[in-house]
């Protein structure tokens, strides 16, 4: 009973930690490629985030299930085989469900395979931990990733065209095209990183004082 409680709380803490404290994009700087490329529209960002989270969770779960059967020398190739299977699934599903978004994402859905987060989670966590815990770990990473994508997509679509999800919110908006092209994406990500680090520093001093009594 108590063992169960400890396991659950450990799962929860890795889950939360991956969303915020070791956020895949801000802190680890992994998977930046797709986060910049697909965030010109909020809808694309949302679909991409969900797809990455889905592939991440399922592949971590499966890798963790068969972790004792994978020979160490060929583990990377096995990871890739498992990951790319689910990426193909996602690609086919997206083509049917949301054909326009799928076209807009172009090759970036296929590039989920080489998104460093997937290999990173598999190699750093799923290969050593039980399936349930790996699933939570990946869910945290995926949600942290999605969060950043949504923030970027929100800002970029709003600033570029004054609309969200293709619905015009601000009329007579002077479109600021720099944000929709490459340089603007880099600058925007850098400014978000500044804000994140400022918040984190503030949080850290607060949590250090709060943790003291324990």
């Amino acid at each position: 009973m108590s063992g169960n409680g400890i396991r659950a709380s450990k799962g929860f803490s890795t889950f939360v930690e991956n969303i915020w404290l070791s956020n895949p994009i801000f802190v680890m700087v992994l998977g930046v490629c797709s986060s910049l490329a697909v965030t010109t529209k909020l809808a694309n960002a949302l679909v991409m985030g969900i797809s990455v989270t889905f592939v991440l969770c399922i592949s971590s779960f499966i890798i963790s299930l068969v972790r004792k059967l994978i020979p160490e020398q060929v583990r990377l190739i096995v990871f890739m085989l498992i990951i790319s299977t689910f990426v193909i699934t996602v690609d086919l599903v997206l083509r049917i469900l949301v054909p326009e978004v799928s076209k807009g994402l172009g090759p970036y859905i296929g590039l989920i395979i080489t998104n460093c987060n997937l290999m990173g989670r598999a190699e750093a966590f799923a290969i050593k931990n039980p399936p349930g815990l790996s699933f939570l770990d990946s869910l945290g990473t995926g949600l942290g990733y999605t969060l950043v994508l949504l923030v970027l997509g929100f800002l970029r679509e709003l600033i570029t065209s004054g609309s969200l999800f293709g619905i015009v919110l601000l009329r007579n908006w002077t479109s600021w095209n720099l944000v929709s092209i490459a340089p603007g994406a880099f600058f925007l990500l850098a400014s978000i990183i500044i804000v994140f680090n400022m918040l984190k520093r503030k949080n850290k001093t607060a949590s250090v004082t709060a943790d003291k009594p324990r």
């Binding site: 700087v29 092209i181 490459a182 340089p183 880099f186 600058f187 990183i193 680090n197």
Partner: peptide
């Protein structure tokens, strides 16, 4: 300071992208 090592690299990449435009 809050930009960090990765942040400043991203800013540099943005400037380079601007130049390549």
């Amino acid at each position: 300071k809050n930009l960090g090592d990765a942040g400043i690299t991203i800013v540099l990449a943005g400037l380079m992208a601007l130049a390549f435009l």
